[in-house]
Design a binder for these strands. Structure first.
Lengths: 235, 235
DNA sequence: CAGCGGGCAACTGCATGCACTTTCTGCCTT
DNA sequence: AAGGCAGAAAGTGCATGCAGTTGCCCGCTG
């Protein structure tokens, strides 16, 4: 049946499925432990099971999905222990990025980092949590890029994705916004000074604090059965 | 055609294919840039194209192969730059592992590490390069495990696999064996002392030296299709 | 002789079909 | 009434088929 794939943006069908399903996991729309039925997914996205299967395989290789042979796939369930290990890794990775950034950022990168960071102060004053969240992501991405190391960049971004479902409410905690900005400030200052060790330490502390806040939050809401009802608009 | 799956080990056919093809890449049997033809691979392993395709997809997600839509898959070609970034990452990751190991290894783990390390001295005297290579891998794996952090373990092992093709000849260099052992010794000593910083530094230095040796080697034999493609990480 | 273009062969991408495995259900046994 | 066990239903795993794309070869033209 199917006319034409209405939502072709880029890449093959499999790529689209990886993004579509991956996004839904990362954004928490699909919750850990939730069953990923090949047939339903295929129907929902109006493709055959083959690309869905391939996508699930790739997501499994990325650690976002867990596959039990002959027993279907579920959104990866991370134990408290594994979650902690990812947060800890994140802190270490960010520390590396900050340390490298202090040593390697071009003057252009340093300038942008500082400017963006300063302008984000406004968002803190306004209490614009959503906008600040966006800036926050940008800020950290700048650090990852500034390290000028493609592989560390990959690992860091990957780890961040896998942690995303557990971090979304981090700014809900009162006063978190201002504190976050101050921590960013410490990182930026150290980088501008070219002090790699200080930058690394500041970044590690920053992430560690976020981790604790998020971990507390994550403990609160455990996955429950959920369904997926939503039109198939590309992300 | 032929009867039942006689070849490899356990798991689904796709898993077997991932291991089979992945091994051949990691061991250098398939060289960077080499074309991975679905039909040939399917015939070679006596399966249909479907599991081969899924395997290639997963290997692509792991970064071991590169897929060009509608144009087939090749063994991932890493640029000198990306290779350097992986070696650097490896040094950082090993440093973390060593640092954590110094703080977290159980007494049993410490004991085994020391014992195995000491007994490997014999292999150095004998100049048993192949056996030492095996011990070397074991030694590093102990460090990764000793860090007691599942996610860092994953990243480290993954990075090591991707570097494997470029490290095979690291012990060819004269005197490398003895030097390697001494470097291991520095790591072990620091860990036994519980000195995380020293352990981390020793590990980083160790890996860096190996990296340089390997990089020199890798430069010598550039594979044919040497195009430069940066892996694009989805966001 | 170089350049160009059409057609063919090879290959990838996806859909569909079938076999096998797991899981659920309801009936039968004890 | 509980346990368990057939049989069916659901769902996964792989093979095969077909359509679309890419790349190549070869003849044609200037």
């Amino acid at each position: 049946m199917s006319g034409k794939r209405s939502l072709i943006r880029s890449g093959t069908t499999v790529d689209q499925m990886v993004r579509a399903i991956g996004d839904r996991i990362v954004t928490g729309f699909l919750r850990p432990g939730e069953k990923l039925d090949e047939t339903s997914l295929a129907a929902r996205f109006d493709v055959s099971r083959t690309p869905v299967r391939e996508a699930l395989g790739q997501l499994s290789a990325m650690g976002l999905v867990e596959r039990r042979p002959n027993r279907g796939a579920i959104v990866a369930v991370v134990t408290q222990e594994h979650l902690a290990s990812m947060f800890e890794s994140m802190a270490e990775l960010e520390a590396i990025c900050a340390r490298f950034s202090a040593a390697r950022m071009t003057s252009g990168e340093r300038r942008s980092l500082e400017i963006e960071h300063q302008s984000s102060a406004r968002l803190v004053q306004l209490g614009a949590e959503e906008d600040y969240e966006y800036f926050n992501t940008e800020f950290h991405t700048r650090l990852y890029r500034g390290a000028h190391n493609a592989h560390i960049y990959e690992m860091t971004v990957m780890t961040r994705s896998r942690l995303a479902p557990f971090r979304r409410a981090q700014f809900m905690l009162p006063g978190r916004l201002a504190k976050s900005w101050q921590e960013h400030d410490a990182i930026v200052t150290a980088i501008m000074r070219g002090d790699g060790n200080a930058a690394g330490k500041a970044a590690k502390d920053h992430v560690s604090i976020v981790s604790e806040a998020s971990a507390v939050f994550a403990l609160g809401e455990q996955p429950k059965g959920a369904r997926t009802t939503m039109p198939v608009t590309a992300s």
